[in-house]
Amino acid sequence: MMIIASNVTKTFGKLKALDDVSVTCNKGHAIALIGPNGSGKTTLIKTILGMVVPDSGFITFDKHNILHDWKYRERIGYMPQIGRYPESMSIAQVLEMMRDIRNSPSPLDEELIEQFQLHEIENKKMRTLSGGTRQKVSASLAFLFNPDVLILDEPTAGLDPLAAEILKQKIIAEKEKGKLILITSHILSELDDLVSEIIYMQDGKLQFHKSLEQLQEDTGKVKIAQAIAQVMKKK
């Protein structure tokens, strides 16, 4: 099981969001997607999800081109950077609707819902929720259907330390199960115990894709934050 992006290019107006990006993500890895603001991380994620259609190049999911395909998304759990939900629906309604739409045969993973104690506030309308609670809902939804692939865009942003820790543990647990996990994050320190590979992007271009060990070796730094700082300094 793998995701391969081949020569993907996408421009928004004059901005080149993705410039000839080719990357391969394999099963069993947790991959950190790192880069400055506007480097194209979110766009790359969205192209993988089919929310953004590349101008050129293509993406395959398990050797199938995702263009004109939609079934593959059954195997992806996605947690967006800013979760946007129908404002007039309650948490319970959103969860119910997603269950209804996914109609997944595999058993549901409600661990995060339990741990975030979402049941206690499930009748609150989405419009009344704080940013952190929204993130909890987003995270719960991403893991709910037990997907093979998890794509997490800034998962801990806005979460309180306790919730962030719960989520981190959950990610590690899923990684252990051999799933493919793609994470973008600004807080590089929290990635240390999570990831096994690093993708570094800048100005829409893929700078490097290495295993964590390789990066540590190349830079002589143990911590990802320091290693990346080293890389940026060199440029």
Binding site: G50, W70, Y72, G83, Y85
Partner: peptide
């Protein structure tokens, strides 16, 4: 006004 709803659902296994 449904842009949230649409955004939420396009990432799901659904045909556009």
């Amino acid at each position: 006004n449904s842009s949230e709803f649409i955004e939420l659902l396009v990432a799901q296994p659904l045909k556009r």
